[in-house]
Design a protein around this nucleic acid. Structure first.
Lengths: 242, 242
DNA sequence: TCAAGTTGTCTATGATACTAGACAACTTGA
DNA sequence: TCAAGTTGTCTAGTATCATAGACAACTTGA
């Protein structure tokens, strides 16, 4: 091992792949541009050329780069800019980028509120909640999976409604909520778990942005609280400071 | 391999460690509480008990858990809550949590502005900039490393000033800036690189929150633009929505 | 046409990761 | 005191990771 002596649990080819991906994300390698040759990359990361090839192979499989024999390897992709505003609507954000937003229900069920959920929603512990698991996509690319909780009393049959509406905005409208806003947002990062990896079509070990948020109506009353996991490689949050 | 068939480049023990850490972070395992036994964890993740032991060993080394022979393994730690406000001061945030904030200069140098940096700072491409590499800590734990750029004309000798001030707020005050605010913040996540890993005392392969931000004076004129990398496992961003 | 530079494919070898099983050392509660 | 449950420490075998070298196939520009 040349980069490190303490094992990190992350394969070298993965570290190289992440490094190149970061370079693409922050613009060091622009879209359409040619990457350095495999030998040069191997030298900068101080690994074997075969290790670099494996890294590039995974990036190619994910559609981030494209190799051309005899010529070079070229950059393909971009990240979705995602503003974290008081008024946050997934469909509007994706649509603004010229891509088609889609929602998909994975699962819906009822469960009693834990202490934390009850506090967020302004209910009593043990109150009946509807839990909705959903995935949101831009064109055919999964962007995030969300677990949403709503009061089962206020939103009876919310799961079935979401299955048709395929959008939280439309679901709320169905129950007469004309407008709502984001009351709180907490952001951190972690590693994707096996379930989310499958839902996001993401390799295990990839970073995810974890967002805990609560939406309230115009009167400030909590409507829905969510935990969303975004594929970090496909999105960039924009925090607007007034 | 039992969890997956396609290799992810992330060792199984790392995935188990991340899973347990996530459980600690989101409260499934409370501080002081006993984790499930090694055999039980091995069964839930469908890996060998030795693999679980390796995962727990790294968590123990990082101080997140503590193993007691014959009894069990117990949870130890917590995350720093970090508000992303218009008025963001590292020292105040850390101080508010009852911990001692510290700053440390790693390196300072001059370099010409790239097109992006010039745009952020409202200067012309190629203008002389001071680049400051620094690390910020809470008590003795590194929280983030930052690369900051300031105009070399407006802030001559900024590197030396920062070395003494150990704080961006104090540095700006030294040049007569009494108040400033955050103009823009962009957040995404990635995997730590080797240099940052050493500076953050973080194992390679760990996730980092990457924050690009620009601070402006009360008149809206750009003062400093930064790229900060936060150890995701030690911090949680709070986005305040007005 | 040709040389230099590129990606693609093969073989081979040592180090590390993961599994499997066994047993020791210790804690807890009946 | 004892049994059940826990963490700690061995040995071993298999699969994957990473390195090394060689050469083929192809592109580009002189």
């Amino acid at each position: 091992m040349s980069i490190q002596d303490t094992p990190s649990g992350v394969a070298l080819w993965r570290q190289v792949a992440d490094g190149i991906e970061r370079g693409i994300a922050d613009g060091r390698f622009a879209a359409g541009e040619k990457l350095p040759g495999e030998i040069e990359i191997a030298e900068t990361y101080r690994v074997n050329r075969h290790t670099v090839r494996r890294a590039l192979a995974t990036l190619a499989e994910r559609g981030l780069v494209r190799a051309e024999r005899g010529s070079g390897t070229y950059v393909e992709a971009q990240r979705l800019a995602y503003p974290l505003r008081s008024r946050t609507r997934f469909s509007e954000i994706v649509g603004a980028g010229g891509r088609e937003p889609r929602g998909q229900l994975i699962d819906a069920s009822e469960e009693p509120a834990t202490r934390e959920l009850a506090r967020e929603l302004g209910l009593r512990t043990g109150a009946s909640l509807v839990r909705i698991e959903s995935v949101r996509l831009a064109d055919r690319t999964p962007i995030c999976v969300s677990t949403s909780w709503l009061s089962a009393d206020r939103f009876p049959g919310a799961g079935a409604v979401f299955a048709n509406a395929r959008s939280m905005t439309k679901l709320l409208a169905h129950y007469g909520v004309r407008d709502y806003r984001r009351a709180s947002t907490r952001v951190t990062a972690g590693i994707v778990d096996a379930t989310d990896a499958a839902r996001l079509d993401l390799a295990l070990g990839r970073p995810v942005l974890v967002v805990d948020s609560t939406d309230v109506d115009t009167g400030g009353k909590p409507l829905v609280t969510k935990r969303s996991r975004f594929a970090a490689e496909r999105v960039e949050f924009l925090v607007e400071n007034s």
